[in-house]
Write a protein that binds this DNA or RNA. Structure first.
Lengths: 128, 128
DNA sequence: TCTTGACCTTCCAGTTACAGGAAGGTTCAT
DNA sequence: ATGAACCTTCCTGTAACTGGAAGGTCAAGA
């Protein structure tokens, strides 16, 4: 199938699929007209990539996961390690964002938000 | 003062300070030797930028905040609006990350993480 | 047969917010 | 005088794409 249909079936934009080819994540066949030709296994990989990316794995981590996925002799522990470390990262991000949220909420509540120029938000930003 | 001291006092790397000048956020004087020369008001701005950035505002939002900060006739409502919309963004991000966390945690717990090749994480990634 | 529109191709530039490094000038202390 | 510690500009690279230009291909309709 052409890239358009592969895009439909995988949920990834055609641009992204070409990019993934550029960086060596997939290697579709080419037809006589130069068009890329995707098989159902390619679409499978693309969906795998789509899902992994949306779960917060970096492209490089996706590359590792894909390699493990294709390695029939892999140990599940290898996969679990990647996923666990990603989980830690996500926890860290959530914690940071929550702190940031608190500070910002405090500022927003302190600001009366009217036509007058005095603003606690700017005051705190300039002192902090 | 030179950029090194401005860096110390503001907490921003010299590289970043030069970058902020490139994109028009600050305009320090220049000494006869070509060195940048920062005053205490510049350092003040730099600290403002540092703090705003670390609160999750984009450089462009910082530009707006800085303009408001320097506009003595601003309405605090303008500032509050920016901060409030940023708060909404942060909430969205936290929600997304939390969902992602749940999914990933589910996967990690389902995986026994041993030497055998069968791995629920990869299975779900390839189906999802 | 011609044409029109929807595909597809490659390549180049832009995005965000800097960081790293090269090549070279300045200042200061010894 | 010389060496370290500054400073300068300029170029490149990062992550993960997205947008657009210029042009080739294909299928359907007039």
């Amino acid at each position: 199938m052409n890239i358009g249909e592969a895009s439909c079936r995988s949920g990834l934009p055609a641009k992204t699929i070409r990019y993934y080819e550029d960086i060596g994540l997939i290697q579709p066949d080419r037809g006589g007209n130069g068009y890329r030709d995707y098989g159902s296994d390619d679409v499978h990989k693309l969906r795998f990539l789509h899902r992994s990316r949306s779960l917060g794995f970096s492209v490089d981590e996706c590359r590792q996961l894909l390699a493990l996925y294709e390695d029939k002799s892999r140990a599940s522990a290898d996969v679990k390690e990647i996923a666990t470390s990603k989980l830690g990262e996500i926890d860290r991000k959530i914690r940071e964002l929550s702190e940031l949220r608190l500070t910002l909420e405090h500022l927003v509540h302190a600001c009366h938000g009217n036509e007058r120029p005095d603003c606690p938000i700017l005051e705190e930003l300039s002192e902090g």
